[in-house]
């Protein structure tokens, strides 16, 4: 099957590659571009481990063909923070024990990032509703919710101080 020429912006960098139409975006990210932050938990659109930001919206990258993403702007966990400069969400997940094995965490944080863009001051219920597409086998969610609420509070405090 002939390959298609695909252009993407990933974490701010333009990339070009060839992919078969049937290749899933998650496979292209992980295998062609070595962006291994987004994980494959189920590959059936259920678990949310593969969550990325595409054109300003949270999506599951196992449910998009790379061909469909041609021209898209993609952000993954790699684009949110670095080991030396953690994103507030990463810091709060660490402080509030929002992870154990860490498998769901890149998807959780990438989703939480967009959730806080859409709703900077969510209630606990809104966090739970907004995160319901991300499954975690370890934490029981309590500390994930705490971490996201703490990150929201921190981001809002920083914003207020700047005004």
């Amino acid at each position: 099957m002939s390959k298609m020429h695909i252009k993407l912006t990933v974490n701010g960098k333009p990339v070009e590659l060839l992919a078969e139409p049937r290749e899933l975006l998650i496979h292209v990210l992980r295998e062609e571009l070595s962006i291994t932050g987004p994980h494959i938990g189920c590959e059936t659109t259920h678990c949310g481990a593969c969550t990325i930001d595409m054109d300003g919206r949270s999506i599951k990258s196992c449910t998009v063909f790379a061909a469909q993403a041609n021209g898209a702007n993609v952000t993954t966990i790699e684009g949110l923070g670095t080991p030396d400069g953690l994103h507030v969400l990463q810091t709060m997940f660490k402080e509030h024990h929002g992870l154990q094995c860490g498998f769901c965490t890149p998807g959780m944080i990438t989703r939480a990032y967009r959730l806080l863009q859409e709703n900077p001051d969510p209630t606990e219920e809104e966090v739970r509703f907004g995160m319901s597409g991300n499954l975690c086998r370890c934490t029981g969610y309590q500390n994930i919710v705490k971490a996201i609420l703490a990150a929201a509070a921190e981001l809002n405090a920083v914003k207020e101080a700047a005004q």
Binding site: T45, R57, S58, I59, K60, R111, L115, S132, G133
Partner: peptide
């Protein structure tokens, strides 16, 4: 129905 990520698509 579904979840945020799914409703977005």
């Amino acid at each position: 129905g579904a979840s945020g990520q799914l409703r977005n698509k």
